[in-house]
Structures are given as C-alpha cells and as structure tokens.
Design a protein around this nucleic acid. Structure first.
Lengths: 230, 230
DNA sequence: ACAGACTGTGCGATAAAAGTAAAGAGTCGT
DNA sequence: ACGACTCTTTACTTTTATCGCACAGTCTGT
C-alpha cells in the first residue's frame, strides 16, 4: 500500500507543530522534519491555507490553527453523542473512570472518557492519550476483538475467550483496568474502566460487558436494542 | 507563496471526510476531489497511516480517525485555559453568549464560546463555525485590528476608530453582535458577545472592551496585568 | 551601520506522483 | 454455482510537481 511522501510530511509537520504549545519557527520545523527550509515553507504555506496552522505575527512562530477545531467538532459526532450517556452510566455503576478507546496502528487511543462523580479518588484518563496496543486492558481488548492471530500474546487469547481483559498496574502503578471489545471487532474499539486497587472487579466486569453490548448495538445500527441491553 | 498540491489534496480529502457524518467511500471521495481513484487510495492510505481517517470495516467507508482528537487537545491549550474564565465572566456580565474568533483566510472562525447561565433565551454559537470575515461583528473587529487598508468597508474603519464593531442581524435575524479586536491585531482575533434584540448595548460594549484588554494582555505575555484590567 | 540569523522566492534537475491498465477480492443476483 | 459487477490494490510508464540550491529581503542586536 503506497503512500504519498508530500502528504506524509505535511501531516508530520502538523503533528510537530501541535506538540509545541509555545510555537515553533519554520526553521526549527525544517530541522525536526529533516527537510530543506524551502520545503518547510511550502508545507507551512499549504497548512496555513487550510487553517490547520497559523503564524503568530509577533514572532512568526507556528501554532495550530482553528481548522483543527472544525475537524474535532465533526469527529464521529453521532457516535460520541450516542455513546456518551452509556459511558456516563458505566462510570456511575462501576464507581470508576470509564473510557472508549480505538486502535490507531500499533497504538491505542482514548476517544471518550467519563469520570464518576460521587467517588473520592478517581483515576484520570485523558481523551486523546495513547499507549502501546499490547499494553493495558483497552488495547488487549481491541486485539481480542480481532480474529485470532498466531503469535499473539496469551492474554489476548484469554481475553477473547473470556470476553474481557483485565490488567493490574500495566500502565499505572496501582491501577486496575477492565475492558471489552466493542463493535464486534469491526470498529477496532473497546470500552472499559480504570480505577485504583479497591475496584470491585467482578461488578466491573459485568457492567463493562453490559455496556460493551449496548455500544456494539449502536455501532452496528441496531439502536433500538440499546434500551433492552442496558 | 507556493503551496504543495499533494498536501493540499490530502487536506481537502480530510475536510471532505469530516463533513460526511455517515462516512464516504473512496470512490466518492475521488469524485469529490476530482482525482483518479488510484490517487484517492494513496491519499487515504497516507491519512490512515497517521490516524487522521479510518475505514469502517463493515462497509469500507471513511470516517475521521482518532488523531484529530489528539490535535484538538493540543490546540493552544494554554490560551484556551487562560482565556476561558475571562470569557465566562464576560458572558455573565453581559448576559449574552460570549465568543472568541480568529481569522482564517477570508473566514472568521469561533474558537471558544461561553454561554451565560442565568438567562432564559440565549443565542447559540458553535465552536468551529465560520462565516465571511467581512460579515458580522467578530470578523469586522478582526479587520479593524489590522492596519488600515484602502478600499476596506466603512464599518471596519469606524470600528477601528471606536474600538468596537456592532452589527444587527448581520448573521442571524434578530441578533445583535458586539466585538473588539484582541491581541493588538497581531493575533488576528476578536472577542465579543451576541444576543437577541434586548441586549443592553452600552453595557455590552464596555464589558467586551474590558475583556478584550484582558485577553490582549494574555496574548502578549503580560499576564500579570490581567487582574488589574478585568 | 554592520553582522548574523531568519524569512521568503526563482529555477533547473530529478525524484515523486499521476494515470493508465490489469489483476485479485468481495458481493449480488440469477 | 456461476458470472457480472464494483471495489481495491499493484505494476509500470509518463508527466510534472517537488526538491534543494542559491540569492534577495527583513529584522535584531551590537
């Protein structure tokens, strides 16, 4: 599957700019991208034209433009809107931080997070944060949603059998994560909860499984099933 | 200032995908972009590699990927974080929906919105929405922040003199907008309020001006001035 | 005023993308 | 079950968009 070098560089440039909260000069961007400055200028001009980046006229530094907000606003709006209440319910029922994650190459990214309200200490999990897909309950659940592959880690196989994945301290010392694949594996996503060691694991597994069924129904268009499964 | 055709197409593709809430096939994308299907496949492969789009395995349709969420999370985080309380205050004081907008070529895009809480009817203004920069108070205020240009509309010149712009029904029947440029024009942004006809205009002008001073201080790094100017 | 760093811009050589064509994969209807 | 269809992907040649050099303009600080 061939890709486009110019587009690839542009997207990498966008990523670099996004990671510099205080801006970056075109010259520095060129260094980071390992391209000639002239190339960087053309990339910037194109990104600028689309509003993806803008230049602070005070010092010429590049920062993200307003267009990224437009994109974010359109990101699976109906999915988020429909998934949100289910996730909130899950967080309340499990007394834990609930999240939905999707596969992104070999990474696993949280796209929606809900924190319980009536809990003293809760685990924070930021939307957009990523970790290796083979680490952590969320990623393992996603892998378990895929068809069995030889050479896959044993915990993935086990998660596929049991219908959920459970990790302790995989991503964070003292944290327990429980997750289930959603969308029947077709969406490459998972839903789960993460909490401190005092998590009621059995209860959490049940509630996460239930929520996963409801979300899967949403993703496959069988919305009317939701009320029953929740 | 030359731009890159390949990158431009990729960004256009991203925009097209983002506007189709229910997904779009590669073939349709190729039609919209007016490129050969083979080209569209290469663009999609590149965007996919960066997580900007993903393909629904159920029907192969393209939707926005999780990477856009990562971008949004990094969009001027410190600016938003610091601007938010000021905007909330403005909304409360003016009893109107307050917003911050930035220039984006010949468009004007809202990047931050705050709605008042103790008001019965409020005007909605969505983050990311755009309109022509020469229409509406927000855009005119931005233009007024730029150095005078000959051939500019008279309302821009007037706004530059008076320090604010005022429009009635320019974008929405029955709505009044008041806005001031911020960042001394260097940021190409404006702050303002929008409300129904019952807006206390004089009061609104004062509060918006005051907020604009505070925000300008934030943008130019003179953060310690904020408390005094608010 | 000058040095130095940064910013922006033509232009020819060349690598990269476009545009064929054609094969493999999956779907649908008969 | 079979063929017709669309979608997807790859291989290869042609075209052209991009690269990267060099040069000019701009700003900053000394």
């Amino acid at each position: 599957m061939s890709t486009l070098k110019t587009l690839d560089r542009g997207l990498r440039a966008l990523d670099i700019v996004s990671r510099r909260a205080d801006g970056i000069s075109v010259a520095d961007l060129a260094l980071d991208l390992e391209v000639d400055r002239a190339v960087a200028y053309r990339i910037v001009a194109t990104l600028e034209q689309h509003g993806m980046v803008l230049r602070l006229p005070q010092d010429g530094k590049l920062v993200l433009g307003a267009a990224v907000l437009g994109l974010e606003r359109r990101f699976e709006p109906q999915f988020r809107r429909r998934a949100r209440p289910l996730l909130d319910q899950l967080a309340r029922q499990a007394y834990a931080t609930a999240f939905i994650s999707v596969a992104q190459q070999d990474k696993c990214a949280a796209i929606l997070v809900s924190e319980p309200e009536d809990v003293l200490i809760r685990v924070g999990y930021r939307v957009g944060s990523t970790h290796a897909i083979s680490k952590g309950a969320a990623g393992i659940a996603i892998l378990a949603g895929r068809p069995p592959a030889d050479g896959e880690p044993p915990e993935v196989t086990q998660a596929r059998t049991s219908g959920f994945s459970l990790t302790k301290g995989a991503l964070q010392q003292g944290a327990i994560g429980v997750a289930c694949p959603i969308g029947g594996g077709t969406y490459e996503a998972s839903v789960g909860v993460v909490a401190m060691e005092d998590l009621d694991v059995d209860r959490a597994i049940d509630t996460v499984k239930s929520c996963a069924r409801a979300l899967s129904a949403l993703l496959t268009g069988a919305a009317q099933v939701t009320r029953d499964t929740v």
